[in-house]
């Protein structure tokens, strides 16, 4: 047991020394891995942030009910009564056409254009908050309201949120594909680093074999090196993301405020960060293993 431990400790220390022995090369390879990994990790992080936002909006089940332009006050009052009695309606707000026009004039800066209009082109409208956030229930409610007399159009405001959700799923698929491709890149980078190491340490490997080193003893420092380099690359990716967030967050917050949304970027969660490091370590290990398996046996004695 202690021999086993000391062998592993020896391999770990040796691989650290080898990383430190060529600092420029090590830093460059680690940066390459870090940059490659920060791409999928960064997109994943952005998707996660957008999803929190869209989930927040989608959880407000809201419908807009536009009445026919020629509908009179009586019809709107009737609809108000029906809405109040409807079990699926939690609350609603009536927006008369005149107020809607006022709002449009104020908010859009189109006041001049509006002055030129002969009559108000906007209909009376209701903003309805539904009792249930379930998409199926909302859709049923929309169809029902649409059929009421005097209603020109019923619109599900959260529809875009579910469309965004579908888009996010597509994005997640893209992240997965990108991760797989860049994972191969990491394996390739490690494979080559280890190949060079094996070539430069040919004498050491040969002598070690001749004096009774097992294949595992010779392999181990290279595997540790690959895994360590992978972890360091993963860490680099993590810090690249952190830097990106720091640079973008203030501007994004300003932009979000313009849309009246409270939004700020969040880094990967603890769990996601650990997965990032674990995956990069595993890929580095695999690259090292492939390299060792394909190069070590060429060095005599077998």
């Amino acid at each position: 047991m202690s021999v086993w431990l000391s062998h592993h400790w020896h391999a770990f220390v040796l691989s650290l020394k080898r990383l430190a022995a060529a600092p420029v090369g090590s830093v460059l390879s680690i940066l390459v891995i870090g940059v490659a990994f920060s791409l999928p990790a960064g997109i994943h992080m952005l998707l996660g942030n957008i999803q929190t936002l869209s989930a927040h909006i989608a959880s407000m089940p809201q419908l807009s009910l536009f009445l026919r332009v020629d509908a009179g006050d009586e019809e709107s009052a009737q609809i108000g009564v029906r809405l109040r009695e409807h079990p699926q309606v939690a609350s609603f707000e009536f927006i008369p056409r005149d107020r809607a026009l006022e709002q449009l004039k104020q908010e859009s800066g189109l006041a001049g254009l509006m002055e030129g209009l002969e009559r108000n082109p906007l209909p009376d409208a209701f903003v309805v908050n539904a009792a249930s956030p379930l998409p199926a229930v909302l859709e049923a409610l929309r169809t029902e309201l649409q059929a009421w007399p005097g209603v020109e159009h019923a619109q599900l405001d959260s529809a875009w949120a579910s469309r965004l959700d579908a888009l996010l799923n597509l994005g997640r698929l893209a992240v997965l594909m990108l991760s797989i491709l860049l994972g191969f890149a990491l394996i390739a980078v490690t494979f080559n680093t280890i190949r060079l190491q094996i070539l430069t340490r040919r004498d050491e490997i040969e002598v070690s074999k001749l004096i009774g080193a097992t294949a595992g003893f010779i392999r181990r420092p290279f595997l540790y090196f690959g895994a360590l380099q992978g972890v360091a690359g993963g860490l680099a990716a993590w810090f690249i993301l952190l830097l990106g967030i720091r640079l973008l967050d203030t501007e994004l917050r300003k932009l979000a405020q313009l849309y009246g949304v409270d939004f700020s970027l969040h880094h990967l969660s603890m769990e996601e960060s650990l997965i990032l490091l674990l995956v990069s370590a595993c890929l580095g290990w695999i690259g090292a293993w492939l390299s060792v398996a394909s190069h070590l046996w060429r060095i005599e004695p077998y």
Partner: peptide, 19 residues
């Protein structure tokens, strides 16, 4: 081949090319 390292550990080898 897995047993060869343990055989070599019982030997002391001085090589012609020193290594």
């Amino acid at each position: 081949s897995g047993a060869i390292p343990y055989l070599r550990r019982n030997l002391g080898l001085v090589f012609q090319d020193q290594k």
